[in-house]
């Protein structure tokens, strides 16, 4: 469970302050599929990065599983990201020379865990890439790349998967496939927060949070 209390984030751009987040209260329960929507520049990505302990808020408090993580030292935040959080990005960010297998296993390198081939194969199977394990990213379609990235986000068995416009670079058919994967993951007990500009997908999420001007504008 993640709880955000009065989260503010202010960026300095030259002489002016940019208030990306202006006091967000948000609680994300376990096993939820949350769609985060809102216009461009509303602060969605900023919010997601703070949720993922990648960025620190200027003001406010964050609790993960009841433990306050605001202002933790960097080493602790790394550990949190490693153990509890998975990230998926719009641009996939796969490593070109590495096979699908090695890309999925990459986070294990940082958590100093061995890459169990059966487990990696199972993750690949879950995202429909069982027969692509030896392929390199350049041999994959966009949808396959994003599915590889999802498997990579899951390899450390996180409690929450954070996806920033995961379907933003995909056609509707592939978007559908990605969404279904995320939905079945949340059905199996994973918390998933997904930023999307696609209203069709947002409607089908259990919960949708609409952000505007750095505030929670409406919620469903």
């Amino acid at each position: 469970m993640i709880e955000l209390r009065r989260i503010e984030k202010t960026y300095r751009r030259g002489a002016e302050d940019v208030r990306a987040l202006r006091g967000i209260d948000l609680t994300i329960d376990k096993k939820e599929l949350i769609a985060i929507t809102g216009p461009s520049g509303a602060g969605k990505t900023t919010l997601l990065h703070i949720l993922g302990c990648l960025d620190q808020p200027t003001n406010g408090e964050i609790f993960i599983d009841g433990v306050e993580v605001t202002n933790l030292p960097e080493a602790e935040l790394v550990k949190l990201r490693r153990d509890k959080i998975g990230f998926v990005f719009q641009q996939f960010y796969l490593i070109p020379g590495l096979s699908v297998f090695d890309n999925i296993a990459l986070p294990l390198l940082f958590s100093k865990k061995p890459a169990n081939p059966d487990r990696i194969a199972k993750l690949a199977d879950m995202v429909g890439l069982k027969h692509r394990l030896d392929h390199v990213p350049s041999q994959l379609s966009g949808g396959e790349m994003q599915r590889t990235a999802i498997a990579r986000g899951l390899v450390n068995a996180p409690e929450i998967l954070l996806a920033d416009e995961p379907t933003g670079n995909l056609d509707s058919e592939n978007s559908e496939m990605i969404f279904e994967i995320l939905r079945s993951l949340s059905n199996e007990g994973l918390t998933v927060a997904m930023i999307t500009h696609n209203p069709d997908l947002a409607i089908r999420a259990k919960r949708a949070v609409h952000i505007k001007d750095g505030l929670v504008h409406s919620e469903r």
Partner: peptide
């Protein structure tokens, strides 16, 4: 740099 950012997000420390 984007890739390095990704690695940091998926659990790489500065030392890694």
């Amino acid at each position: 740099s984007q890739e390095i950012g990704m690695m940091r997000a998926v659990g790489a420390s500065r030392r890694d």
